[in-house]
C-alpha cells in the first residue's frame, strides 16, 4: 500500500494562487486605490457639506454643544477639537479611505469619506 501524498499538483497550484492573491486583496482594499477624495460633513440636520481632501485646511462647525474643529491635511481628515465629553470623535483619528466614518453624536457632527457619487443620502442602523 503506497501512502498517498497530502497535496496533489492541482492543490499546490490552488494554494499558490490563493496566497498570491492575498497581496492584491490588501492592495485593493487597503491600499492607495481606496483613498477617498471628498469628505461629507453633516452638521445637525443641515445639508451635507462636501470638503475636498487635497487642500490642507482647518474648518470649524457650530453644533448644539459648541464648536467642533476639523482638520484636513495630506489627503486625510480628522476631528481636532470637540466640546463633547467622551471625545470619541477625536479618538477616531485620521480618516482617509472610502467609506470611513467618524461622528460626534453629542454635537451632531459626522464625517464620511465619499466618492464622487455617493449612493445613499443617509444610512440608519
Amino acid at each position: 500500500m503506497t501512502r498517498t501524498a497530502i497535496f496533489t499538483r492541482a492543490d499546490i497550484i490552488v494554494v499558490c494562487v490563493a496566497i498570491l492573491m492575498l497581496p492584491w486583496l490588501y492592495q485593493h482594499f487597503w491600499g492607495d486605490g481606496s483613498r477617498g477624495e471628498i469628505a461629507r460633513v453633516q452638521v445637525a440636520g443641515q445639508a451635507p457639506l462636501l470638503i475636498p481632501l487635497h487642500r490642507s485646511q482647518r474648518y470649524t462647525f457650530d453644533g448644539p454643544l459648541g464648536t467642533s474643529v476639523i482638520e484636513v491635511r495630506d489627503g486625510r481628515i480628522r476631528f481636532v477639537e470637540s466640546p463633547c465629553r467622551n471625545k470619541l470623535c477625536i479618538h477616531s483619528g485620521w480618516l482617509q479611505r472610502n467609506s470611513e466614518f467618524a461622528a460626534c453624536l453629542p454635537n451632531l457632527v459626522s464625517i464620511t469619506i465619499a466618492g464622487h457619487n455617493p449612493r445613499f443620502d443617509s444610512i440608519n442602523f
Binding site: 498517498t4 497530502i6 492543490d11 494554494v15 490563493a18 496566497i19 492573491m21 492575498l22 486583496l25 490588501y26 482594499f29 487597503w30 481606496s34 479611505r97 472610502n98 467609506s99 470611513e100 466614518f101 445613499f120 444610512i123
Partner: peptide, 28 residues
C-alpha cells in the same frame, strides 16, 4: 449596509486560506 465592511475582506480571506489549508491537510 456600508462598504466599509469590505475593508475586512483581506483579513478574512487570509484566515480562510490558512484555515482552509489546515482543514484540507487534516481531511487528507
Amino acid at each position: 449596509p456600508h462598504d466599509g465592511l469590505f475593508h475586512l475582506l483581506p483579513l478574512f480571506i487570509t484566515a480562510a486560506v490558512l484555515f482552509g489549508i489546515v482543514s484540507g491537510i487534516i481531511s487528507q
